[in-house]
């Protein structure tokens, strides 16, 4: 579904060129859940933006569904760390925003999307909140609305940039359980960025570990634990602990004494 070949990204910083990503090669299968994990500054968010077509890569090639990515695509949705809801729009009209922006739907098409919006909101437990304004909802509920918005156009690919990192631990566990359920139900390909090892282990089929400055592929770890998985009550605690330990090892190895940006050395 997604293919990355020799992808590199260089930014022009004030102190000269900053190499954010180097030689990234990755192939994400259809319906696969892949997590990008790494310390801050390893370019994981940049990589996600490249796949989304929000940034053009400096080098290499990115394909989604067999086509080279040249800009944002209709069948790819992006979910941010913050809910990014428009404060003057009701919950349901926030969910409908992507449909409204792309336009071109007939009245019937729009009505179908509207029904779908209500279904999705019900799916994430927000039935009865459709007419509320974002500020009337808690952070977790807002992020659920944001999740519905990214699902409204039935994307083939969902790109998620640390979507749960601003939430409290309990909401986070709930939402990651919901995300697993939704992915099984709707069969989408997901690329997920996080710096939480727990989250990566619970959610992913494969975890891609990136090293910082410049971001390179360190290792790809397969997670072969049966689903549904959860953090609280897990039948596979030993495997989880083993993989978590391994990931932890990979991430701490990267600690370097000199923490200066590449360009200043």
């Amino acid at each position: 579904m997604i293919r990355l070949d020799g992808v590199g990204q260089v930014f022009d910083g004030r102190a000269g060129e900053v190499r954010a990503l180097e030689e990234i090669g990755l192939h994400v299968q259809e319906n696969e859940f892949v997590t990008l994990i790494g310390r801050s500054g390893c370019g994981k968010s940049t990589l996600l933006r490249l796949i989304a077509g929000l940034l053009p890569p400096t080098s290499g090639r990115i394909e989604v569904a067999g086509e080279a990515v040249s800009g944002p695509r209709r069948d790819v949705s992006f979910m941010f760390q913050r809910p990014a809801l428009l404060p003057w729009r009701s919950v349901v009209s926030n969910v409908m925003l992507p449909v409204e922006i792309s336009g071109g739907d007939s009245e019937r098409g729009k009505a179908q999307y509207r029904d779908r919006a209500h279904e999705l909101l019900e799916l994430v437990g927000l039935k009865g909140f459709e007419r509320r304004l974002p500020h009337e909802l808690s952070g977790g509920m807002q992020q659920r609305v944001s999740l519905c918005r990214s699902l409204i156009r039935r994307p083939k690919v969902m790109l998620m940039d640390e979507p749960f990192s601003a939430l409290d631990a309990l909401t986070r566990t709930e939402l990651s359980a919901e995300l697993q359920r939704i992915q099984m139900e709707l069969a989408t390909t997901i690329v997920f960025v996080t710096h939480s090892i727990e989250e990566a282990v619970v959610l992913s089929d494969r975890v891609v570990v990136l090293t910082p400055r410049p971001g390179r592929l360190r290792e790809i770890v397969e997670i072969d634990i049966p689903r549904p998985r959860s953090l609280g009550q897990n039948a596979h605690l030993t495997e989880v602990a083993q993989i978590s330990g391994h990931l932890h090892g990979l991430l701490s190895e990267q600690e370097r004494p000199v923490d200066l940006p590449e360009a200043r050395r």
């Binding site: 944002p72 209709r74 992006f78 941010f80 990014a84 428009l86 992507p98 922006i101 792309s102």
Partner: peptide, 9 residues
């Protein structure tokens, strides 16, 4: 929010 709209083309 600007990035959101960009991602929606």
């Amino acid at each position: 929010l600007v990035e959101l709209l960009k991602s929606l083309n």
